[in-house]
């Protein structure tokens, strides 16, 4: 049960955005720009993969399941990549560059001061751009916020995986649209 009285019928972050629409609008705008924006240095699939990976590191079930579902939809026939990364990114069938970037993301999740010059230089050597290094850190930091918000208020987390598949498809195709505020 959530720690505060939230509008019923919405899971996870959606219940919080319905509870406080003004902060909800800013949070959804951030997710949209970061994961789907034209300025992103990653494909939508890659950005969702980093979001799902960080959420899994933070053990935030709602965010992990929903962003993993979005990433699976976007990776299409390569969707097994997503679960392989969540299981162990170092052995997953992804590029060495992506592994280096996920290594940086993991440091950000644990203690951001541990992102060393060496880790960044290695990612660059493997082809990562400044912008991708920036976006990796910002996606990781942003999901450390979302995960804490969603779990810190103990929002409702659907348990069946089937709940997340349509959610992921909606996130991947329509994007991040805040729910209608309470009473409307």
């Amino acid at each position: 049960m959530p720690h505060i009285t939230l509008p019923e019928g919405f899971p996870g972050i959606r219940s919080l955005a319905a509870y406080r629409p003004d902060t909800g609008a800013a949070l959804y705008a951030l997710a949209e720009a970061l994961l789907r924006g034209t300025e992103s240095s990653f494909s939508q699939a890659e950005a969702e993969l980093i979001a799902a990976f960080i959420s899994a590191q933070n053990e935030c079930t709602f965010c992990t399941c929903s962003h993993a579902a979005a990433a699976r939809y976007l990776f299409n026939q390569d969707k097994s990549i997503v679960d392989a990364v969540i299981e162990n990114y170092e052995t997953a069938p992804i590029s060495e560059k992506m592994k280096a970037l996920l290594g940086i993301a993991k440091c950000v999740q644990q203690d951001a001061r541990t992102v060393t010059d060496e880790l960044v230089a290695n990612a660059r050597l493997l082809g990562a751009t400044d912008r991708q290094i920036h976006d990796t850190v910002l996606i990781a930091a942003t999901f450390c916020m979302f995960n804490r918000y969603v779990d810190g208020l103990a929002t409702v987390t659907p348990l069946g995986l089937e709940a997340y598949e349509p959610m992921g498809e909606r996130m991947a195709t329509l994007g991040y649209i805040p729910p209608k505020p309470m009473g409307q």
């Binding site: 992102v115 990781a140 804490r148 918000y149």
Partner: peptide
């Protein structure tokens, strides 16, 4: 309180993660 604390985790990690 929870959202301000979560938001500052974003800021802190953004600021430190890029040194």
């Amino acid at each position: 309180t929870v959202l301000i604390a979560a938001l500052f985790c974003l800021y802190n990690k953004y600021v430190d993660g890029l040194a």
